[in-house]
Design a protein around this nucleic acid. Structure first.
Lengths: 213, 213
DNA sequence: TACGCTTGTTACTATCGGTAACAAGCAGTC
DNA sequence: GACTGCTTGTTACCGATAGTAACAAGCGTA
């Protein structure tokens, strides 16, 4: 077998893989976290074992799906992070980018972050909480940017990683809550979070009627 | 049937429920996220249907378990939050309390936050990502304390809730990452996070070698 | 004794992830 | 043309698990 054909086959299988992923995406969009392997295979016009040949197990399929979406999100976040503006603006732009993404595609977001939620059998598309890997990836990425661009003195690498994961967690938790309750506009949420990051908690006074310490 | 006996029975069933929860706790401690309903029933010396009569479904059992642990954690956090010290100390004490809890009982923590992780079948104790409810509860609780004690001016209630959920998310994500990688001591992590909350990100200078904006 | 209530069991269903075992098409090789 | 090797695809199964009847046994009470 010549190398030309091997390349053909390789690109062919990759195309196929892409098609399968797109089918999986459609099912996830439609069925939410209840998507089963059978349903995905049916949507792709094939049967289960092929999915398993391509992705190993359900976790593999999920990971491939998650990587696709995470990559897209990361690109958008990097653009906001690298915009030519002062730090406060960049932080706000980054927060807004993330929140816009989860607002625009809540189905995808819920699938990535909260697989297996509804459904009677509770036997949804779970495969072991992939939100953590996703968030960890975002945290590491943010840490890299912080370490690159902010002067933190001694032990800056460690500090940057702590902050990276901390800020991503803040963004994620606040975004998750906001997406459910919609207590305010996206812009307001962004400002509130930026205020928090800008140390307003430290400078705010004690409440007058509150406990006296 | 007299009311006395009805009370007896009620307290009896509640005692039983408590025993079942303790058995479930032991299994979770031992088997981690792979705990099955059968295993829990066996540990309690009974069979499945009784668990279902007491807790409805797996989610019910999980929720009851989560509430127990969350209550205990909340008590500890409230104590730290209400200690007679300045705000920075209280924040540090609270962070440290949380981190100590997850450090001391990682099995419980992993079960609450990351059910269904290991195991070949990936069919672990999942039941729909209960970490979110848990974190939401912590967030609301912290929001209450912030709104009570910090003077935030206009729209303080909304701001406090954003911060409550944001800070809890920061604590959770950083703690989760720290628990896995152990890149530094707990004390250091606490200081790093408190620094972040105290606005050091805003005041730090640009890195000299970094991109020029 | 007969009733009602709770506790408990055995035996079952349904569903889902995952896996053989086998069939068919299609390139290149003898 | 027949043979080999590879990928794609199928049907039919296994094993584990959540969840559910249907039935039995203890135990106070009327």
């Amino acid at each position: 077998m010549g190398t030309a054909q091997r390349d053909d086959q390789r690109s062919a299988t990759e195309r196929r893989r892409k098609e399968l992923l797109e089918a999986a995406d459609r099912v996830v969009l439609r069925d939410g976290p209840d998507a089963t392997m059978n349903a995905i295979a049916a949507e792709a016009g094939i049967t289960k074992p092929i999915l398993y040949r391509h992705f190993g197990d359900k976790g593999g399929l999920y990971r491939a799906l998650a990587v696709r979406h995470t990559d897209a999100l990361l690109d958008a976040l990097r653009a906001a992070l690298d915009a030519p503006a002062d730090r406060r603006r960049r932080v706000e732009a980054t927060l807004d980018t993330y929140l816009y993404a989860i607002e625009a595609r809540p189905q995808v977001y819920r699938f990535l972050m909260h697989p297996a939620e509804g459904g009677p059998g509770e036997r949804g598309f779970d495969v072991g909480h992939h939100s953590a890997p996703l968030l960890r990836r975002l945290g590491e990425e943010l840490a890299k940017v912080i370490a690159e661009r902010v002067d933190l003195g001694e032990g800056s690498e460690e500090l940057a990683r702590v902050w990276g994961h901390g800020i991503v967690g803040m963004m994620h938790a606040a975004g998750d809550w906001w997406l459910r309750e919609r207590p305010c506009s996206r812009t307001q949420l962004v400002h509130h979070l930026a205020d928090l990051l800008w140390g307003r908690l430290a400078t705010a006074g004690d409440r007058k009627g509150g406990p006296a310490f």
